[in-house]
Simulated scan of single mutants.
Amino acid sequence: MTFQLHHTTIAADTPGASTVLYWYTAGPEDAATRVHLQAALHADEQPGTMALHHLLPRLRDADVADRLKAHFTIYPSVNPLGLANFSMRHHIGRYDIETGVNYNRRWPDLYPQVADAIAGKLTADGAENIATIRRAAIDWIDSQQPRTAIQQLRLHVLRSAAAADIVLDLHCDDDSLKHIFTSPELMPGLQDLADWMGLAATLTAEDSGGGSFDEVLPTLYRNMRLANPSHPIPNGAETATLEYRGRADSFDHIGQQDAAGLFGFFAGRGLIDAEAGSKPAPAPAPTPFEATEVLRADAPGLLAYRVELGDKVIKGQPIADLIAMHGPEAFMSRRPILAGTDGFILSRVMGKYVTRGASIAKIVGTEVLQARAGAYLLED
């Protein structure tokens, strides 16, 4: 049996303080395929942690029965620093309260760090080239000297991911249908993941603009291919951000469903020698993230939604009314906020008091929006 709990202590940035990161491993260390799973990088997003809570016993039992054909590394709550970020009884788990930086932004661009190290070492064998690039990335990570707690955490997690063939980062939205973000070259390869999750949408982008965790490895291999066109460099890692509905959706019955979907995905890939379960219905085909409108409020006020999650809408249709909270008709007048594209409602916000510029909904369309092409795509 290889199923094992591990922990490491992360020294905090203030005297006498530290925190502990826990993770599990399961499956043969020398397996041909390595899987990295993590949840709650945004520490205030718990549905992914609930899903892994229910997946872990299934992996343990499969491990005891010698049915795991891949090596799994699982971080059920990958950001203990963010778990500690409370202010006035409010959990600020999305941002580092010292710097204000989103925990899922500004992950390193590995290509310029390792390009020189692989120069002259690539061959005509794609698998060899992936191994060479991985070694260079891990060597660079190992050479770093973290100065802060968040740097310690990031380097530890990134080292695990850099060695993996499948890297899944479990998140959630505010109030949302299930969806994933991934790189376009990884589709349709990850369509089976989309199917097993029962997604409403798969949104793809090469660069969403924020340096998100799930883009680190695809960006590395993509840039290696561009810089070395005479050498075969396959996709070295299938990575995706899995958005498990909204923050309020941490319930046992939902977590069990989500764990079953992950188990079915891995079993369907032959990474667990077990019945995958009933074949899921096909999920929608991927769409460019640039075709999704992030609808924002142009003034402060109180939202009154006119639509539900999943509703189909057309351009110009009222999505919500914004009730005025200042001015001559304060708390009396209201005006509509209109959809800027045809599509369906993927997400809304739970807090209905909004400030100017706040994101209030995402509308998934099919046509790339001119204002989104080449722009920063995230909400933040």
Rank of each mutant, 00 (worst) to 15 (best):
A205W: 09
L177Q: 01
G210Y: 04
P232E: 00
A267G: 02
L242D: 10
S176W: 10
L193N: 00
D169G: 01
G268I: 04
L309E: 01
M224H: 03
T182I: 00
L220Q: 06
G310S: 08
S230N: 15
N223M: 12
D214A: 11
P286W: 03
D175T: 13
E238I: 09
T182Q: 04
R247N: 09
V167Y: 15
H171E: 11
G246I: 02
A283H: 05
G310W: 06
G270W: 05
F266N: 08
T204S: 12
D311A: 13
M224S: 15
S278M: 12
R296H: 05
D273L: 09
G211K: 10
E275G: 07
G255F: 03
L295R: 00
G210H: 08
A237H: 11
A259D: 08
L177M: 10
V294K: 05
L295S: 03
I233W: 11
F266H: 05
I254F: 13
A260K: 12
R225Y: 00
Q256N: 00
S230G: 14
I233G: 04
A299G: 10
L203E: 03
P280M: 06
Y244T: 08
I254N: 11
A299F: 00
G255S: 02
L220G: 01
H179T: 03
G270A: 04
T202R: 00
F181K: 04
V294L: 13
G277A: 01
L217N: 13
A304N: 12
H171M: 10
V294I: 13
K178A: 13
A297Q: 01
D273P: 05
S278I: 12
A291E: 02
G209E: 09
T292F: 01
A200M: 02
L220E: 13
G255P: 02
K178R: 15
L193Y: 07
I254T: 10
S208Q: 12
M224F: 03
A237L: 06
G255Q: 06
E243M: 02
A240W: 07
L177Y: 02
D192V: 01
L190R: 00
L186V: 08
V307C: 05
A259V: 05
R306N: 02
A248S: 15
G261P: 10
R306S: 10
M197C: 11
G210I: 04
S212I: 12
Q191T: 09
A227M: 08
L177H: 03
P234W: 03
T204K: 00
G236H: 10
V307P: 08
A205M: 11
R222Y: 06
S212C: 14
N223A: 14
H179A: 11
E238V: 10
D258V: 01
A283M: 00
P229D: 11
D258N: 14
R222C: 01
G189N: 01
P232S: 04
A200I: 07
E243R: 01
D207I: 00
F213G: 10
R245I: 07
R222P: 07
L242C: 12
F251W: 12
A194Q: 09
F289I: 11
E238M: 15
Q256P: 03
D298K: 15
P229N: 09
E308N: 14
N223E: 15
D249S: 10
L190Y: 08
L303M: 11
A240H: 05
H253W: 14
E238R: 15
I233Q: 04
A259W: 09
Q191F: 04
T202E: 12
G268Q: 06
A200S: 14
I233D: 02
L217F: 15
Q256W: 06
N228D: 12
H231G: 01
G236Q: 08
D311V: 06
D214T: 11
